[in-house]
Computed example of a mutant assay.
Amino acid sequence: MRIALYHPDIAGNTGTILRLAACFGISVDIIEPCGFAFSERALRRAGMDYAAAADVVRHADWDAFIATRRGRIVLLSTYAAIPLPSAVFASGDTLLFGSESAGVPENVRDAADLRVRIPMRAGFRSLNVAISAGIALAEGLRQTGGWPE
């Protein structure tokens, strides 16, 4: 299982997701451009020293990411019809998260093999992307038996 971030806007969120990935031994795809200068300094505060241990693959754009695609793309979106508890994950899935400010464009949404939403109480728009990544990854690892020993 992998996490992919499409045009991430906020270094702190990206750093937090890199820390999450390092702790659980999964890879992260960064689909550029980023809304911040992608540097160790920018990511250090949220990622701490864990971010350096994450397996990160940077892609110049969406087409470069698709060219190296592995397994299914599972888009997490507030607009998706399938609630997380009903989604069925596979170990080769890539969990794709859009930018904090704009999500993903239609062509990216259409390329997803599965579109999943995290159910929330009525009246709330969305969760922080790093929180969403942790929730979705936990469910995916639970289903696939991918938790580290």
Results as ranks from 00 to 15, higher is better:
117 R>Q: 13
116 V>Q: 09
34 C>P: 06
102 A>W: 00
101 S>R: 12
68 T>A: 15
17 I>T: 02
67 A>G: 03
40 E>K: 13
144 T>W: 06
4 A>I: 04
64 A>Q: 13
81 A>P: 09
87 A>M: 08
29 D>N: 02
7 H>G: 09
4 A>R: 01
33 P>E: 05
114 L>S: 09
90 A>V: 07
41 R>H: 15
123 G>C: 12
130 A>I: 01
13 N>M: 11
136 A>Y: 04
105 P>A: 05
9 D>A: 14
122 A>H: 14
22 A>C: 02
113 D>P: 02
80 A>E: 09
123 G>D: 00
40 E>A: 15
47 G>F: 01
70 R>S: 13
49 D>I: 15
20 L>R: 01
16 T>M: 11
67 A>L: 07
148 P>G: 01
95 L>G: 01
33 P>G: 12
143 Q>V: 07
18 L>C: 12
87 A>H: 06
7 H>P: 10
33 P>D: 11
104 V>I: 06
140 G>E: 05
26 I>D: 14
149 E>G: 05
99 S>K: 08
133 A>N: 10
1 M>D: 09
28 V>C: 04
127 L>Q: 02
26 I>P: 08
26 I>K: 05
124 F>K: 07
48 M>T: 12
71 G>C: 05
40 E>F: 13
131 I>R: 08
59 H>Q: 12
